[in-house]
Structure formats: structure tokens, C-alpha cells
């Protein structure tokens, strides 16, 4: 149940607080968004709160990467073993990868540019939007949350930063991916060996094809939690300003300038 009915007939809303998450328009650097799509197709879209597109692209990327062994080819290429890279790539699906990869980068860039325009219009229109939501399953409201705390939770285990910010569906998706990546890459096993000082065993135990997903995924979740929290706070401030202006500036108020008393 929202605290909001759409009787204001606004043209654009800059945010929506729903049971499962807070969706928000804000200014973004299109270049940064495009670079996150370079890291992992779909991440740019997730940063733009375009979740269905983002999930589709992320799932596709992992499917096709597993099919053609792109990550392994990357590991070989970075180490100058170009013949091994050639051999490990599976040509059957290889060309399927490229168009979708480029599309993800281009589309996230384009969408970021568009959403910036929409944001400016929505910001000037300054219409009211749903700021509170309570229902059988969840409660969501605007609040200030320290960005560093969201980032630290995400560093601990990706998805908790998102949960802290009440991006429930993104958190669920992120947690599922974290578990799959950790299980398949055996990263924690490698860290366990490292802690015991067994460097050789640690290198031997990880699976390169799966491990190579981890860096971009891990830093994405921290970055997402951090920036989302910053923007969430700005939204809170903006909404509270509007609330105060609408309700606590009664017309005809005269404030006499007295002198200070102790």
C-alpha cells in the first residue's frame, strides 16, 4: 500500500518507493555506465535501475562465456599464450558473443544519456511521488543511510549492501550469483589455502574460467551499493525539503526580530 495516489497527473516522476525497492532517476556519467557494461554486460543497466534488461544481459553473458570459454581465452591472452587462447575458444558460438556485448555497452550509454534528460525534466516538474510503502511482505521508506556502510557490507558479501538499501530483487539476484561464483571458482578455498601459507595449492585449486567473473562482479556490487546510497540520501533530502516547503511555510507568517534571551 503506497502513501500516494496518482491524482496529480504528473508527466514524469523522479522516483518510486515500492515494496521491493526504491527506483530513482538521477544524473549519471554515461561514460561510467558504459564502462561498467564493458566490465560485464548488464551492469550498466543495473546501475540505471533497468533491472530486467540488466538481468537478461548478465545471464546471457555468463551463458555464452561458459559456452565459448572466453574467460580462459582471456587468461591465456594476458599471459601471451596466444595459441592456447585460440585453441580454447569455441568457434561454434563465438560470434554470437560480440553483437550482444557491443549492444549492452551502446544501449547502456544511450539510456544513461536519455535518463539524464528525463531526470532534468522530472526534477524541474518536481511532482510528488510515492515515498512510503507498506504491505503484507515488506515495508519500504526513504531514509538516510551512510554510503560507506553500504559499501562495507557489500565488501563482506555482495548483496548485503543492496539489502541494506532495500533493493530486494537486485540483492536476491546478486546473492544467487555470488553463491554460484564462489562455489564454481572455489575462491574461498583458495583464500583458505593462502591463509595457511600454501600459495601453490591456492593457485591450483581455483578454476580460471569461473574466477575471472569475480573481479568485475565484486567491485560492481560495492560501487552500486555506494552510489545508490549516496543518491538515496539525496532523494531523502530533496523529498524532505519539498515536504517542509509545502507544509511549514504558512502564508502571512511574520517573525518578529526580537533580541536574544538566555
Amino acid at each position: 500500500m503506497n502513501n500516494f495516489r496518482n491524482r496529480y497527473r504528473s508527466r514524469r516522476y523522479k522516483a518510486h518507493v515500492s515494496l521491493v525497492g526504491t527506483t530513482q532517476l538521477h544524473l549519471r556519467s554515461p561514460f561510467t555506465i558504459a564502462l561498467w557494461s564493458v566490465a560485464f554486460p548488464g551492469f550498466g543497466h543495473l546501475l540505471l535501475n533497468k533491472y530486467l534488461r540488466g538481468y537478461a544481459l548478465v545471464v546471457w553473458e555468463m551463458f555464452i562465456n561458459q559456452k565459448i570459454h572466453l574467460n580462459l581465452a582471456m587468461v591465456y591472452s594476458f599471459n601471451g599464450q596466444f595459441q592456447a587462447a585460440r585453441e580454447v575458444l569455441d568457434p561454434r558460438f563465438m560470434s554470437l558473443y560480440i553483437p550482444v556485448y557491443l549492444f549492452a555497452i551502446w544501449d547502456s550509454y544511450r539510456t544513461a544519456v536519455d535518463i539524464n534528460k528525463v531526470y532534468l525534466l522530472a526534477h524541474r516538474e518536481n511532482s510528488r511521488f510515492s515515498t512510503y510503502s507498506i504491505g503484507a511482505f515488506e515495508i519500504n521508506y526513504l531514509d538516510k543511510r551512510p554510503p560507506w556502510l553500504a559499501a562495507v557490507w557489500s565488501m563482506g558479501i555482495p548483496s548485503t549492501g543492496q539489502l541494506y538499501l532495500h533493493r530486494i530483487i537486485l540483492a536476491f539476484f546478486t546473492l544467487a550469483y555470488t553463491i554460484i561464483l564462489i562455489a564454481q571458482s572455489r575462491l574461498l578455498l583458495a583464500i583458505h589455502h593462502l591463509i595457511l601459507g600454501e600459495i601453490k595449492a591456492a593457485s591450483a585449486v581455483v578454476d580460471p574460467q569461473w574466477l575471472m567473473y569475480v573481479p568485475s562482479f565484486y567491485f560492481f556490487t560495492i560501487y552500486d551499493a555506494y552510489t545508490t546510497s549516496v543518491e538515496n540520501n539525496k532523494l531523502f533530502v530533496d523529498e524532505q525539503r519539498n515536504f517542509l516547503l509545502r507544509n511549514y511555510q504558512p502564508a502571512g507568517t511574520v517573525i518578529p526580530a526580537g533580541s536574544k534571551v538566555e
Partner: peptide, 20 residues
């Protein structure tokens, strides 16, 4: 961070200290 980490982890499969 993600770019250097990806390259570092790749090189780690050959270099002594390992990918992690």
C-alpha cells in the same frame, strides 16, 4: 580496480603468487 584485478588475476595463473 576491476580492470587491474582482472588482468592481475589472469597473470597470477602464471606468476608465482597465484591469481588471488
Amino acid at each position: 580496480a576491476f580492470m587491474f584485478s582482472t588482468i592481475g588475476a589472469s597473470k597470477g595463473f602464471v606468476w608465482a603468487w597465484g591469481p588471488v
